[in-house]
Simulated scan of single mutants.
Amino acid sequence: MQIPVPALTHSFTLRVDLSSPIELGQGRAGQRRIIPIVGGAALGPDISGEVLNLGADWQTIFADSAAHLDTRYAVRTDDGVVIEVINTGTRHGPSVVMDRLATGEDVDPASYYMRTAARLETGSQCYAWVNHTQFICAGIRRASAVEIAYYKVD
C-alpha cells in the first residue's frame, strides 16, 4: 500500500486588519509581541463573511528575524455563523526583508516565507465540515493587515 499524497483545494482567503503591535520585550525564546486583530473579511468560495474585532497574533521574533505566528480569532459568515480560527506557523526571510516588513513596508511576498496550519471549529451543522478539515495557508504581510489563503488538505 502506498501512502496517499495530499492535494490542496483553495477554500477561502482572509484579509485580516491589524492594530499596532503591543511589545512585551525579550522572552525566553525571543522578542515577544501581541498584534490585535480588529476586523477584516472572509472571501469565499467556501466561507464568506467578516473577521470579527476579536483576537490577536501572539508572536515570537527570533534572533534571526524569523517569526513564530500563533493566532486565535473568529469569522462571522454572511449567514450569521461564527467560526473559530486557530492558526500557527512561521514567517522568515532575509533580515533586510524582515526589517522592511516590521516597518510596515509592502514587500514582494516572493522574498519571504509565510506559511501556517489552521484548525477551524464551529457548532453549526452548515459548516460542520470545518471541524474535520486540516487547512494549510500561505500569507502576505501588509502594513496594517495580512492576507491569508486557506487551502483544504484533501
Rank of each mutant, 00 (worst) to 15 (best):
M1E: 10
I3K: 02
A7P: 00
L8E: 04
H10Q: 13
H10A: 06
F12Y: 13
V16M: 03
G25M: 03
G27K: 12
G27Q: 06
R32M: 09
I35D: 04
I35K: 05
P36G: 12
P45R: 10
P45Q: 14
G49C: 01
G49M: 04
E50C: 09
E50T: 11
V51C: 06
L52K: 02
L54N: 12
G55P: 05
D57L: 01
D57F: 00
W58Q: 06
W58R: 04
T60A: 03
F62G: 01
S65H: 04
S65K: 06
S65W: 05
A67E: 07
T71W: 00
T71P: 00
Y73N: 02
A74M: 14
T77W: 13
D78W: 00
V82S: 03
V85A: 08
V85S: 06
V85D: 04
T90K: 08
T90V: 13
R91D: 12
R91Q: 15
V96D: 15
V97E: 14
L101A: 07
D106K: 04
V107H: 08
P109Y: 12
A110F: 13
Y113L: 14
M114C: 15
A117I: 06
A118T: 11
G123F: 02
Q125C: 08
Q125W: 10
Y127S: 05
I136L: 11
C137H: 05
A145C: 05
V146D: 01
I148V: 15
I148S: 05
K152V: 13
K152F: 01
V153N: 10
D154K: 09
D154P: 04
